[in-house]
Amino acid sequence: MNRRTMILSGAATLALPALPAFAAPLDYTPGLLKERIEAGDTVFLDFKASWCGTCRAQERVLTSLKQQNPAYDENITFINVDWDTYGTSQMAERMKIPRRSTLVVLKGKEEIGRIVADTSERSIKKLMDAALSAATSA
């Protein structure tokens, strides 16, 4: 690469707007939920399956809302729970998770809210706002 190309490439890179970095959701493993709750996190559980159309629709809404408001990612711990692996686990049974495409928000031992098979932006935003409120309150 000649000097002129290198300088122009560097200048072009600097001219690009900074894109917000979104934290990738954590993948559930046994013990993770307890660890995050004991750490004081507000936890947003997404019980999903890769083959589930409703789950994919919820994920699109979640991604869009996070892009619109980075405070969600900054204050809430998002955990994906693979339905095929953990749908019949003790944790899912204890929480009475009826099916995949269930979204649940927890703060400590308290359930803040849940949605089952709802893909509307209004409902998911309401749940995310409740999670954000719980996460940022004293």
Rank of each mutant, 00 (worst) to 15 (best):
R60V: 12
L32Y: 14
Y28S: 06
F22Y: 13
G87I: 04
L19V: 13
G31R: 03
R3D: 11
F44T: 01
A131P: 09
L16A: 10
R36S: 02
S64W: 04
R122T: 14
K126I: 09
S9A: 11
A135Q: 05
L103M: 04
E93V: 12
D41A: 06
I97A: 02
W51Q: 04
G87Q: 12
E93L: 14
I112H: 04
K66L: 13
M95I: 01
A15S: 10
L132V: 15
A135C: 11
R122A: 15
I115Q: 12
A117S: 12
V105R: 02
V61A: 08
S137P: 12
V61K: 05
Y72A: 05
T88R: 14
M6K: 07
M6L: 10
A39W: 07
K109M: 00
N69E: 14
T29N: 11
T102A: 01
A134H: 09
D82W: 12
I76D: 01
P98R: 01
M128K: 14
L103F: 00
D46N: 09
R60P: 07
T5V: 06
L62G: 09
T54A: 10
S137M: 14
L127I: 07
K66D: 14
E93S: 12
S64N: 13
T102D: 02
A21S: 11
G108K: 00
I97V: 15
I7L: 11
L33T: 02
Q68L: 11
L62V: 08
V116E: 09
M128S: 09
L65N: 06
M1R: 00
S137C: 10
A15H: 00
M1D: 06
N69M: 12
L8A: 10
V43R: 02
V43G: 03
A134T: 03
D27F: 12
R94V: 05
A57L: 10
I79H: 05
Q68N: 13
I79G: 04
L26M: 15
T5R: 09
R3N: 09
I112A: 04
K126T: 15
V116G: 01
D129K: 07
P98D: 00
N2C: 04
I97H: 02
T136N: 09
T136Q: 15
D118M: 03
T119L: 07
A117W: 04
L132N: 02
E110Y: 05
A11E: 05
L103C: 00
V61Y: 03
I79F: 12
Y28M: 06
A130T: 06
L62W: 13
M6D: 00
Q68K: 15
W51H: 04
P98C: 00
S120N: 12
S64R: 15
W51D: 01
R56K: 15
L19H: 08
L132M: 13
R99P: 00
Y28H: 13
A57V: 10
L16S: 06
A21D: 05
T85Y: 01
R94K: 10
S101M: 03
S133F: 13
L14Q: 02
A134F: 08
K34F: 01
F78R: 08
E93D: 08
Q68R: 14
A117C: 00
I124T: 12
T136V: 13
A15C: 09
A24G: 10
I115G: 07
N69C: 11
P25S: 13
A92W: 01
E121C: 02
A130V: 06
K109C: 00
Y72F: 14
M1Q: 00
R114V: 07
G53R: 06
L16C: 10
